[in-house]
Simulated scan of single mutants.
Amino acid sequence: MPENPETTERPGGEQPAEARPRRRQARGERRVAQLLEAAASVFCTTGYTAASTNAIAREAGVSPGTLYQFFPNKEAIAIELGERLMHQMRETYGEALAPVDPATPLEEAVGAAVDRFIDFNCRHPVFFALMHGPDIPGRIAEEHDALHVTLLSRVETLISSLLPGAPAADVTRTAHVCLGIYKAGLELVLSHEGAEREAYVRELKNVLLRYLRPLVDADGPAFD
């Protein structure tokens, strides 16, 4: 049987030309991931404005020249990192903010949504640093605004399932307040670690429950 020319090594162990670009691409993807991980660490430590490509290269253990092979400046790094994180965040809120069964206890509905978002932000603290800082690049700011609009819409959908008889304007207002409470609490959660972080997560859930409980009870006994 003839040998497969795509898998046969050339004399001296040299690989066919088709294999070399694939290997270079894989190495490039690993290097990009390495640089993005280093950038996330630097942005969390110093903030976006104070960060530099030299600091990112140093954190990644590569030369600045190597970094510039993949990114022209720190803004390009932040944009790539932000886009990847926002893609993951969209997947997270798609799962966390689905409408709930009317028989679901309020504590469970709120707790599940908060836990999913807190887990994402604790695993990716740079998301908060990039999305809520005063000096984020314009393109990230635009993407964040679009994400906020979509997130608000999903919160409204969740609130509607909790308050099926509420007018649309009330649902929108309630969704805005819930997002505001969550964002304020998230900053406190991320500034602590261990048992103290868990305590702040519980406090955040309690605040949301104390805000939503009277609204749910007034709307009907579905969550009693």
Rank of each mutant, 00 (worst) to 15 (best):
V155P: 11
A78S: 06
I77E: 09
P2Q: 04
L67S: 02
A55E: 15
S41V: 15
N121T: 09
P5D: 11
G65F: 13
F43A: 04
L188H: 00
G47A: 12
T150I: 01
A98L: 01
Q69V: 07
T104L: 01
A33E: 15
T49C: 06
M131Y: 12
G165W: 15
H87S: 10
N206R: 06
T157Y: 07
L186F: 00
A60L: 12
A113L: 13
E196C: 00
P134L: 14
A17L: 05
G82S: 07
P164K: 04
G82Q: 06
H132Q: 14
I77K: 03
F223G: 02
T45G: 14
Y68H: 14
F117S: 15
R197Q: 06
Y48I: 14
P21Q: 06
D135N: 09
S160G: 15
M1S: 03
V216R: 03
T157M: 05
A38I: 05
R27I: 14
G111P: 14
L215R: 13
P72F: 13
T45I: 15
R173G: 09
E196P: 06
M86N: 11
V62H: 13
F43V: 09
P11G: 11
Y182E: 00
P137Q: 03
L36C: 09
P105R: 11
V149C: 10
E95G: 01
A51E: 06
R173N: 09
G194E: 04
P21C: 03
A26S: 12
